[in-house]
Design a protein around this nucleic acid. Structure first.
Length: 558
RNA sequence: AGCUUAGUCGUCCAAAGGCAAGGAUACUGGAAUUUGACUCCAGUGAUACAGGUUCGAGUCCUGUCUAAGCUUCCA
């Protein structure tokens, strides 16, 4: 059975090795979001890697909020983030932590560093510090405050804590090396005065640790074995290790992977905010947004997103994944799991002239043919139906065409075979008003004795039974696969047609039994999800993704 | 320019010095089909460049080129 070794990504190889050599008896990872924004598709990769690692190798994953900058963080984001991770299907149980829980320990760590002569209070302004930092070509210069005595540093730092100094007046810096080739090692700031209200610690603190002095130590405090983060923190690793070594605390190991970009999407918080503020989208959960909440509202399933992250893979190469892969993962999951529903987006009336006026037949139709034990429901068939406008042409365009045209026959899915005899056209507008067809009485689906072999099968809805609904057809938010890769501002590439609203589509009556968030397939059209804007009178369907359309492709080519 | 990292089919990921560089997706062609979906079959397509080590290099070494990150009291 296990004849070929499944290939592991480079992080899994490290973990497997650490487990095999006994370096660790079990592993612990963490997902450390800052609660200052909503999770997006890029975050899902980090979530899948961190939680996925312990699902695969055993061990636990902590959820830890990196809340060290009170000015931008809030509990609202905490709740939204928790909801999104849960929805993705990951659990952290009781293991919900906050960097702010460690403020006391972090303060003690800082004091310890001062006592070891490895940190000092600097009174310089931020401009002076920036100057002293040097740049990539030039070494920095030592701060005039660098050689303060330990006692003075201790006193000053405590007074910083006590709120005796104003915001920005003093910082605590690690004393490392002002000429280090890695700029982050040039005496980085580790504490700043910030008299701000914190969403959890309230007004208890007047100083807050910087990321570099909070993240690694938090990992260490929790005994995280493998701290998996994105490539942008590569430069921070020497510092991460330096603090752990100097403090003599648990040596968590940081490993970096490349973050995920997706074509036609952007994930920068600042830029997404512009889309929201400038009204390009309706909000953070607009179905066109790359946020988890947006994807969810659009109709994405957690399974599809997780499969996508899995297929995108893990490496250290810059990655831009084709959004087509995301869409394909959705199709694959929804194909297996959703019921097929009859719906007509752009209705064209069909009158079956030889079908009795008041007759209604219940036609049996399979809910989802992909199920192991398929179930069935009935849909009403009557004299007047709707079909898709696209499914009729006045003249058959070519030999490959398999839909309705004068004189042609088609199968109505799970109904009868019909023949188009005539059509009514508005000569002014050229619009086709209705079709006149005849049906073959002995061609009923399931008991077809007509011997006819129509080439095409169409979807349809009985006119008098149809439920009117709204459809929102979403397309990519940008017209360019890399909206940030140009001279012009990314707003220049916003797709003006990313949303098409169809106020009155026709759907089979069974949809009234569905509820908000339900996903289903409109036969031959695409996968849809019921939007929360729906009311009891009017359902609203968001298009999550279209079905593949080979015919459209053929037409495009000619 | 300094440091760090990375260059493999269009895209994403494999191949720990050893078969014909493999898979996914995309693309092309075909089969089947009461969804032009799904499924099935076949095909196109890559080791950045130049040297070197080796019986043998995508993999090791040297150099070149290219790309990304770092030069905020954000994370």
């Amino acid at each position: 059975m296990e004849d070929r070794k499944e290939s592991l990504n480079f992080i899994e190889q490290i973990v497997a090795e650490d487990l095999a050599t006994g370096k660790h008896a079990s592993i612990m990872t963490r997902f450390p979001p800052e609660p200052n924004g909503y999770l997006h598709i890029g975050h899902t990769k980090a979530i899948c890697i961190n939680f996925g690692m312990t699902e695969k190798f055993g061990g636990v994953t902590n959820l830890r909020f990196d809340d060290t900058n009170p000015e931008t963080e809030s509990t609202e984001y905490v709740e939204a983030i928790k909801k999104d991770i849960q929805w993705l299907g990951f659990e952290w149980g009781e293991r919900e932590y906050y960097a702010s829980d460690y403020f006391g320990q972090l303060y003690d760590f800082a004091v310890d560093l001062i006592k070891k002569g490895l940190a000092y209070v600097d009174d310089s302004t931020s401009e002076e510090m920036a100057e002293g930092k040097g740049n990539i070509n030039q070494p920095g210069t030592n701060s005039p405050y660098r050689e303060r005595s330990m006692e003075e540093n201790l006193d000053l730092f405590e007074r910083m804590k006590n709120g005796e100094f104003e915001n920005g007046s003093r910082v605590l810096r690690a004393k490392i090396d002002m000429s280090h080739p890695n700029l982050l090692m040039r005496d980085p700031v580790i504490y700043r005065v910030k008299k701000a209200h914190h969403h959890r610690t309230g007004d208890a603190w007047n100083i807050y640790p910087m990321y570099d002095f909070a993240h690694g130590q938090s990992d260490s405090i929790e005994n995280i074995t493998h701290s998996l983060c994105s490539l942008e923190f590569e430069n921070h690793r020497p510092l991460y290790n330096w603090f752990i070594e100097q403090l003599g605390i648990y040596p968590s190991r940081q490993i970096e992977f490349s973050r995920m970009n997706v074509t036609y999407m952007i994930t920068s918080k600042r830029r997404l905010l512009r889309l929201v503020n400038e009204g390009v989208v309706s909000g953070w959960d607009d179905p066109r947004m790359p946020t988890v909440s947006g994807l969810r509202r659009k109709g994405y399933s957690p399974e599809a997103i997780r499969t996508f992250c899995d297929k995108a893979g893990v490496s250290k190469r810059e990655q831009t994944v084709d959004v087509g892969l995301l869409e394909e993962c959705l199709r694959q999951h929804l194909n297996k799991t959703t019921d097929r529903i009859m719906a007509v987006l752009n209705p064209l009336k069909v009158i079956i002239t030889n079908y009795p006026e008041d007759k209604v037949e219940d036609m049996s139709i399979v809910n989802n043919p992909e199920e192991e034990n398929p179930t069935y429901r009935t849909i009403p068939f009557s004299r007047e139906l709707y079909i898709e406008q696209d499914d009729f042409k006045e003249v058959k365009p070519n030999r490959k065409y398999r839909r309705l045209a004068p004189g042609e026959i088609v199968r109505l899915k799970s109904g009868y075979i019909i023949k188009c005899d005539d059509y009514v056209k508005d000569e002014e507008t050229g619009e086709i008003k209705e079709l006149h067809c005849t049906y073959f009485e002995n061609s009923r689906s399931g008991s077809d004795e007509s011997g006819l072999k129509p080439k095409g099968t169409l979807g349809w809805v009985s006119a008098k039974h149809a439920v009117k609904a709204e459809a929102r057809l979403y397309d990519r938010l940008f017209t360019d696969p890399n909206p940030l890769g140009h001279e012009e501002d990314f707003m220049h590439y916003v797709n003006e047609n990313s949303l098409e609203v169809l106020p009155e589509i026709m759907v089979e009556p069974s949809v009234m039994e569905r509820s908000v968030g339900d996903r289903l397939q409109f036969m031959r059209i695409g996968y849809f999800c019921i939007d929360p804007d729906s009311t009891s009178e009017k359902l609203i369907f968001n298009r999550a993704v279209t079905l593949k359309d080979t015919w459209a492709k053929i037409q495009r080519k000619s």
